[in-house]
């Protein structure tokens, strides 16, 4: 059996939103689950997040947005990843996101969204099933 390399995940806070409780919990839970985690810290522009994702060669980007700016910010990150030939880096996330916005976000290319009440185990098992190391 080939030993698979560990998943590398970026946990990002994009925009001006300072609510980092969820992002920090998820980052710690990913780390405890054995993933490699890069946490961007606060107040990152979409451009900064995409740069970090590419430089760190991550398998997926997970964004936590509680500011109501999710349509703009998810859209911008996905657009920039595609522009930079990194559309294979999957984008998922969570936060305060009204249910009606979820189909629109998925159309934009967000693969999954976790809203209040999701457990860290829900997110981790989803990642194990759906995010795989990218072909290098």
């Amino acid at each position: 059996m080939n030993e698979q390399r560990r998943l590398r995940l970026l946990v990002g806070k994009v925009g001006l939103d300072g609510h980092d409780r969820g992002a920090k919990i998820i980052a710690r839970a990913f780390r405890d689950a054995g993933f490699e985690v890069i946490y961007t810290g606060l107040h990152q522009s979409p451009d900064q997040v995409v740069n970090t994702a590419i430089q760190e060669d991550v398998d997926a980007v997970s964004l936590s947005i509680l500011s109501g700016a999710h349509m703009h910010l998810f859209g911008k990150v996905i657009e920039l990843l595609r522009e930079r030939d990194s559309g294979d880096i999957k984008v998922f996330g969570g936060g305060i996101i009204p249910e009606e916005d979820i189909p629109r976000l998925k159309e934009l290319g967000v693969v999954e969204l976790f809203t209040p009440g999701a457990t860290t185990e829900d997110v981790i098992s989803w990642v194990r099933e759906n995010i795989h190391p990218r072909a290098v």
Binding site: G15, L16, G18, H43, S67, G68, A69, M71, H72
Partner: peptide, 21 residues
């Protein structure tokens, strides 16, 4: 959020956040 961060609505980081929270 832009106001909380001392930024005007036309700042680059304010995009998508004006009047939201």
């Amino acid at each position: 959020l832009p106001t909380l961060m001392g930024r005007d609505s036309d700042d680059e980081l304010a995009q998508g956040e004006v009047g939201k929270e």
